[in-house]
Amino acid sequence: MGPLLRSETHKMTTIRAPWLVLGAAVALQAAASVLLVLGGTALSEGLRHDAAAQRMLLDPGDLAIFALVLGALVATTDHRHDTIVPTLLATPRRLQVVGAKAVVTAGLGLLTALAVGGTAVTLGLGLLALDGASLALGAGEVAEGWARAATVMVACALLGLGIGALLRNQVAAIVVPLVALAVLAPLAQFAMPDAHWFLPTGLEQILLERQAGAPIGAALAAGLLAAYAAGAVIAGGAVMARRDVV
């Protein structure tokens, strides 16, 4: 698995798209942090002394969609450019390829969380210091917020990989989850207020503590989200293992 992991990592680090996605996530996080502090809102005022408001600033934003797109890129770039053929010629055992892609994808999810979280904390602390505010949060609380976001991003990246492996088409693998997020998730929340918590978007909300009234705790939500991710990867891998590629 080692050589294949290095190969898949090399493939993703030697093209532009993953770096652009990661850069966009960091830029969005930076913009959100700056706007939060300079926005002139009640929340901005609260940042000076309120732990909950400071947590909003220092926790990574809800940017899991970027991790999902990265996962979709890992799965579909080979198909989009037909590089799946030389990949499978070098490694005909396809489940090994899927396994390596899953590990690389999880790493990209973690990298996204590190980049976004690092941006949030660095900018947040810097902006608070400039404003003369004192930190009302402990390091443990900041770390917990990052860990929750990292769990969501790793799971979403793997969901993206599974969806990409199932659909193969890169545009579809990115657009379908975006539509689900923008249209289906709000509809589900409206139509099934109790059940929507158990969808990936609901579990994400629980983990990121974005909504009150969750029926389950963070640990169970993390487990269920991991199960969704594992299911998507297994389904995508099973399809990829059987599919003709020329």
């Binding site: 493939k11 030697t14 093209i15 450019h81 037909d82 590089t83 799946i84 053929v85 030389p86 020329v246």
Partner: peptide, 11 residues
């Protein structure tokens, strides 16, 4: 193979 080649953005 005719199908299958390098990624255009990679060296």
């Amino acid at each position: 193979l005719e199908h299958g080649g390098p990624h255009p953005g990679r060296t």
